[in-house]
């Protein structure tokens, strides 16, 4: 994935640690959307997700010296984002306040495309939303690993490092999460 870039993520953070602020901008550009997808699927609130991504990238700026080359940069960054997202979820559970972001997907507005393959696109959008909804109903520890593995397409080893859980447990959780999702989405086909 990184081969299309001149510098790898690890080289960029190294340059940033040495004072190159442009390297920080490059890292932000590389990771902002990936982090947004991960956090949004995790907390199911676009505004909160954007705040968490921003917090993550600010932490990257202020705590750049905490990164050590022993770990992959993306793993380190996902760990920060994941921890912030988990903290937010815990706060949310404590508040137990239903807000607009927790509305069912039935309440969401859809952008209906107007070209010829409208039906196919609408169906794709519908399936996507149903999957998103099903993911939200998974327990937190299943949801996090399934997003990292199946949506972010990280390796099992990376997922294991990010969630700080043994590899075997991660594999087992992912398999069980897939079985639960399949059970929930049976009618979708």
């Amino acid at each position: 994935m990184d081969k299309k870039f001149i510098y790898s993520d690890e080289e960029l953070i190294g340059r940033f640690q040495n004072g190159d602020e442009q390297a920080y901008i490059e890292l932000v550009n590389r990771f902002r959307d990936r982090l947004m997808s991960f956090v949004y699927r995790f907390v199911n609130d676009e505004v909160v997700a954007e705040d968490i991504v921003q917090d993550t990238l600010v932490k990257l700026y202020t705590h750049k010296d905490y990164y050590r080359k022993i770990a992959k940069f993306s793993t380190w960054l996902y760990t920060i984002a994941g921890n912030l997202a988990k903290t937010e979820l815990r706060k949310k559970k404590r508040r137990k306040v239903t807000n607009l972001s927790q509305m069912g997907t039935d309440d969401w507005e859809y952008d209906i495309p107007g070209d010829e393959d409208t039906a196919e696109k609408v169906h794709g959008q519908f399936v996507g939303e149903q999957i998103h909804k099903a993911i939200q109903s998974l327990p937190d520890h299943f949801r996090e690993v399934i997003i990292l593995r199946d949506i972010q397409e990280l390796s099992y080893e990376e997922v294991s490092s990010i969630v700080e859980v043994p590899l075997g447990t991660v594999k087992s959780r992912i398999n069980r999460a897939r079985l639960q999702l399949q059970e929930m989405l049976k009618e979708l086909r």
Partner: peptide, 21 residues
């Protein structure tokens, strides 16, 4: 069914950040 689900999850649309981000 699980194979299809995995493919669908991979194809989920990316959530973009807002303009003022």
């Amino acid at each position: 069914s699980i194979r299809l689900l995995m493919n669908s999850m991979r194809d989920l649309s990316e959530v973009k950040i807002s303009d003022g981000f």
